[in-house]
Every structure is written in structure tokens, then in C-alpha cells.
Nucleic acid binder design. Structure first.
Lengths: 293, 293
DNA sequence: AGCTCTGATACCGGCCCGGTATCAGGCGGT
DNA sequence: ACCGCCTGATACCGGGCCGGTATCAGAGCT
């Protein structure tokens, strides 16, 4: 058996995602017949049936599901190789640090402040992304390091260093009965009448069933809270993006949220190591969870 | 910029490892001119110089070193995609568990025993490898799970579950003065006259400098100990491969060794999950470190 | 039956990969 | 200084494979 080419993997991923040869071909910018042939060759090469063709499209076999998952990871690795190599070519390129927009704002500010003061520190470019995108940007080489949050983000496959452990708060619309409380419990927050928890898209882009509004970005979420349509429980440091119409109330029994700095285990460059060291130096200097007074 | 193909990565890795276009071409089974052209195209495509050509061969640039590391990881991921897909095609294929030959022998025996008794457990094929090979076999899809040892093995990029924490022992030639001791300390074991620590090959195949003998396999090592040429400090459970000519003495202040079960984060199949669960069920049943009596 | 939508097949042209032959240049030996 | 020798680079050619167009085959629907 000789080696797979990324072209074959890209073609397969397109078909597996569209479950339709014609649409996949359009997405790839080629015609349908060569695509059918390529998939057939791939199946023959691997000796495994990947798709069950049908009059109304195609369906993944068990092996096809495995290959879809593996192929995505492999393509990310190849893309990462290209991106990281190109960035290694630019001498004195900045490191890219990615974080969820709005999360861990104080920590990030302090980190950037420390780096600005240190003469030897590498320049850092901050890339803000939406929820759940950090892992992909880190995996495919678009970013060098990420601030992520345990237990919310998927940290598998990364090296991490804990930076900050904090409690969580409920973010409520100002004026809501619960907003005047000093503290809340998870049981009180769950199933609040008229304030269902918002629903995030799954990895495949579909939404779970439920009563809450569908959201895709944090600004959508922030506005929905301000409009009195939903509430959320988030790490205390996310208060940074609190609106005037928001009220934050500590949730005393919520699991602790840990902010970590994460990087791909393969990229152990001096610059990344230095950045991680600077970040680790901030550990234990968490601001108080409750506002003073 | 369009996409890299694995062919280009394989070619580059060959050249980067050989540092010689001619030898790399032989290894790849192609002629030298197309290889030179392919590398040149790759450099042009990435917009980065990867190799400094020279009258006596080639040398990696900084970007080249990055690409070598990344390309190896990417090629492993692609190979893993192929292997895992093929194995997914065989219905009721056994899971492959890889471990260092001789390590954690009792734990492995107990694990296999438990799995044999459980009716729903997946069949397991055991693959024994040499030191440091587990990570690669796991990464490239040749194995589904591995028994590895912290802090000795490189666990980056894998999900793990701790199975067994144990002390370490010194394995000495029978008849050596230290062999009659009840226990030893690291300081005593270090720099024993006439018993230098053996040297293992680095990732690139070269050996570090030092007085000890060069070894590549555990059986070489075992024999060298029996011959009175070296000593080693290993987890207590590795006594399983103790020879009659070996004597094991606990090293009281050696760092603890943890046996973990590891698997690629991408392969979260039911079978792997079930195997990990069975293995985790053995936790805390470590045999005593000191032989009874 | 006929339309439509699916993927499969047939065939052809162009590109790119890989081979052979050759070149260019630095180094070492006598 | 000459000549081999080794390095990678260049030139050119042939074939295979990829991708395009045209067409087929079969099932569901009206």
C-alpha cells in the first residue's frame, strides 16, 4: 500500500461533510466524475468501503466515520506544518496568542503588560476568536499559544500550564429578581422561568434541542442577556465584557474554572517557552472574585 | 497558497534526514533531479528557504528544522488515518495494546486476565516494542492504546489515565558490593566506580557522550547488567525481566514512576473506552515494592 | 412514460512527475 | 594547474494521472 495524498483526504472530507458528490465537487471546484473516481480509488487503496452510495446521496460507513475524524486531524497537521514553517521563515515575526473574545481580560492585560516590560520577551500579536475556535486555530498553526478554560474547552492534544483558578458568576439581565441577590447556587440558576440557557452549535454546526435561544457569538449572547432573554454562568473574570444592563452574581457551588495557557506539544520553540514562563509568573495573583466593598 | 501534498513532505523529510539529495533520492527510490526540483518547488511554494545547499551536502535552515518536526507529525497523522480506517473496516478486529517489552508485566497480566473474564471486553492483541517506540506506534495508528511510564516516556499529545504508582529499584549485577544492601539512595547509585549508566540513543539515532555502554534494546541492557558492565534504576515492576544474575535493590529516594494507559485523543472509540475503563479498574492494586520476607 | 436527481462510465487533453543526459563549481590529490 | 570526483542544478522528453465534457443507468415522483 503506498501513501495517501492530502488531495485524497481533502476530497473525502468534502464528500463526507456534504454527503453528496455533486455538492462536494462544487465546493472543491472540480467536476463530479473525477471526484467519484478519486473516492473510489481511495476506497480501493485502503481496501475499505467508506461510503454507502444511495439514490439520494451518500452515507458514511463505520470506517468512513473513522476516516473523517482522522483525515480532519491529518489535514490540520499538514496545514500547521505549512503555516508554522512560513512563520519560522519570517525572522522576528510576532507570536500569535489566541483567546476567546472577552475571556480572561484582566489576565491578558497583565500578561501583555509584563511582556512589554521585559526587554527579551518576544512580540505578541493577540487574535480574538469565538467560543471553541481556539483549539482549531492552535491545531492548524494559525496561532502559537492560546488562553483556554478548563473544563470548558477541549484541551486534548495540547500541553498546558494552569494560570488562574476562579469561581463562576451568573450573568443576569439588570432588573431580574435574581439580580439583586448576593449569591446564587447552581440549582437556583438552572431552570429559571423565562430565562432558558442559550444553546451553542455543536461541532457539526447543528444546534441541540431545547428552549433557549440559539447563539453563535459572544456578542449575540451578551445582547440576549441585556435583552432579558437568557442568562449564563461564566468564569468570574469574564465580567470584563459586562454591559451596563448586566448584573453579575457569584454562583457559590459552580465548579471552578481554570484559565490555562496551551500550546501544541510539537512547537516547543524558545519564544513559546519564554511566553509560557512569563505567563506562569502571573500565577496566584488573581483579583478577588467579588468586587470590593 | 494551495495545499501541501504528503509526497512533498516525504521528500523533504528524506532530504532533511539525509542532508544529502543523492542519498535521499536513493532512499525514496527516485532519481536526484526530480527530488531537487520538488524541494525547490516546495521552498518556492512556502516562500521560505528550507535548506542551505553546499558543496558537501545540505544543511537545515531554521524554517527547515521547523518543517522537519512538523512534517514528521503530519505524516504520522496521515499514516494514522490510513491505518485506523483500515482497521475500522475489519469488523471485530482486535485492539492493539503496545508496551515496552518487560515493563509493567504483572499489571499487563492482570489486565489481560480481567479482559478475558469480561464477556463484553474487546479482544486485545499485545505488541511489545523497545524503549521509546510506543509514542510513535500510537501516533501513526499502529496501536490503539499503550502502557507508558511517567516521567520516562513522552506523553505529550495523548490522553492518559494513571494506573499504578510505584517506587524504583536499582538493578545490579549479582555479586557487586552494592547488591547486598537492603536499600540504596540515588546519590549512592550515581557514579558507582566501574558501573557507568548506559547511554540510550537520542531521537536522531546518535548517542550522547559519556563513559557508559551504548544500548538500543532492553535485552542488550539486561545482558550488560548480568555481565557486570552497567547498572540501571527502573520502576519496581520491571523486576519481571530480572535475570538470575541480577539483583534488585530499592532506591528509596528515586522519583516515583507512574504507569499510565495512553491513547490518541482522536480515537475515542467504544472499544478503547471500554479497555481504558477495565484498566482503570485495576488501579490501587499494586503489588508490594519490596519482595515479601 | 417521462422528468429529475443521484452517482457511474467513457474518453480525451494537458499538466506534472519522474527518468536520462548533462552542466557548473568547489575540493583534493599527485 | 590539471583532472577526477563529488556535490546539486538544468534541460528535455515521455508517460501517467488528474480533471474536463458527454453520456449512461437506475430509482423515485408526478
Amino acid at each position: 500500500m503506498d501513501h495517501l495524498e492530502t488531495r485524497e483526504l481533502r476530497y473525502f472530507v468534502a464528500v463526507a461533510e456534504e454527503l453528496h458528490f455533486g455538492r462536494a465537487a462544487v465546493r472543491l471546484g472540480i467536476a463530479q466524475p473525477p471526484l467519484s473516481r478519486a473516492i473510489r480509488q481511495l476506497e480501493h487503496r485502503l481496501g475499505v468501503r467508506l461510503l454507502d452510495r444511495d439514490r439520494r446521496g451518500a452515507a458514511l460507513t463505520g470506517a468512513g466515520e473513522v476516516l473523517l475524524r482522522e483525515a480532519r486531524a491529518a489535514l490540520d497537521a499538514v496545514a500547521a506544518a505549512a503555516r508554522r514553517t512560513q512563520r519560522a521563515g519570517d525572522s522576528k515575526r510576532p507570536l500569535v496568542l489566541v483567546t476567546k473574545a472577552g475571556a480572561s481580560h484582566e489576565l491578558l492585560q497583565r500578561l501583555l503588560g509584563v511582556l512589554a516590560d521585559e526587554p527579551g520577551a518576544p512580540p505578541v500579536e493577540v487574535l480574538l476568536c469565538e467560543v471553541g475556535e481556539q483549539a482549531r486555530l492552535l491545531r492548524d498553526g494559525s496561532a502559537d499559544v492560546a488562553l483556554m478554560h478548563r473544563p470548558f474547552d477541549d484541551l486534548t492534544g495540547f500541553d498546558t500550564e494552569d494560570l488562574l483558578v476562579e469561581g463562576q458568576i451568573a450573568l443576569l439581565p439588570a432588573g431580574h429578581p435574581l439580580a439583586s441577590r448576593d449569591q446564587l447556587t447552581l440549582a437556583e440558576v438552572r431552570d429559571v422561568p423565562g430565562l432558558p440557557i442559550a444553546r451553542w452549535p455543536r461541532l457539526d454546526g447543528s444546534y441541540p434541542d431545547g428552549p433557549g435561544p440559539q447563539v453563535r457569538t459572544q456578542s449575540q449572547l451578551a445582547q440576549l442577556v441585556a435583552l432579558g432573554r437568557t442568562l449564563l454562568v461564566i468564569p468570574a473574570s469574564s465580567r470584563a465584557w459586562q454591559w451596563p444592563d448586566h448584573v453579575a452574581v457569584p454562583v457559590v457551588d459552580a465548579p471552578e474554572a481554570t484559565t490555562v495557557i496551551a500550546w501544541p506539544p510539537s512547537s516547543r520553540s524558545r519564544e513559546v517557552a519564554s511566553l509560557v514562563r512569563s505567563a506562569a509568573g502571573l500565577r496566584g495573583t488573581a483579583p478577588p472574585v467579588h468586587p470590593p466593598g
